[in-house]
Write a protein that binds this DNA or RNA. Structure first.
Lengths: 115, 115
DNA sequence: GCTGTATCTAACCATCAGGTTAGCTAACCA
DNA sequence: TGGTTAGCTAACCTGATGGTTAGATACAGC
């Protein structure tokens, strides 16, 4: 089975090279060569990363002479973002710990009160 | 080189099985057997997923008789969340397109005005 | 101590991911 | 027309990932 969009997006941005590329594209579109410059990596390797990003819909490609500039398409990130957002109530506080404790105390039989 | 925390978190949640497990753990802690129940997958396979989640710090394990219950630890998600947040200015609007256009028009030499 | 239940580890297998080099194509320029 | 530059594909290699089955371990209860 082919992966859903959220999985596609998340595994695309799970790679630090690809995250760096996306960050770079926030400053505006760039050619493959420009994107490859900061990395000690062959151009074909970068091409593969770009293909993954394009497959996830995170970039789109143009065509300008012999350049094929990349442009950021942040839209798919939105869905991934809101998936993570579900958990935001769990990280600021340790309410989950507290809830769990309360739950255990409530469901505990009297013998458990020793602890 | 070992991957950074953000990469670790993102690749952990890039898998739909592991995302489902985390969702389940929002309702409270659960045993391995309970977590495995919804999936058509062997217990060892689930154990491996749990190990990945634990490695990313997304769950912690307890010990209660022969059970080893899992508990959600959402904290690492926070960092991943704020990484994505950087891009939020790009997805609601198409300002980035507009910016790119303006930029190109401004830096264009007079000959380019034909287009 | 024996039995059943929950969990983990080991070994194995297939597929995927991320990199390489070599070689091709397409566009610009002289 | 030929050279240079940008980018891509193909073939290959290695290590990680995601699954399996079989067997080990730990604990509860009789």
């Amino acid at each position: 089975m082919q992966p859903d969009q959220v999985s596609l997006t998340l595994s695309a941005i799970a790679d630090p090279t690809r995250r760096a590329i996306l960050m770079r594209l926030m400053d505006g579109e760039a050619s493959v060569k420009e994107l490859a410059a900061p990395f000690e990596m062959s151009i074909p390797a970068i091409c593969k990363h770009l293909k993954v990003l394009e497959g996830a819909g995170l970039i789109s490609r143009g065509r300008k002479a012999q350049l094929r500039p990349c442009r950021l398409e942040a839209q798919p990130l939105r869905e991934a973002y809101s998936w993570i957002e579900e958990f935001s109530k769990f990280w600021d506080t340790n309410l989950n710990r507290l809830d769990g404790l309360l739950e255990r105390l409530q469901s505990a039989d009297p013998a458990a009160k020793k602890n």
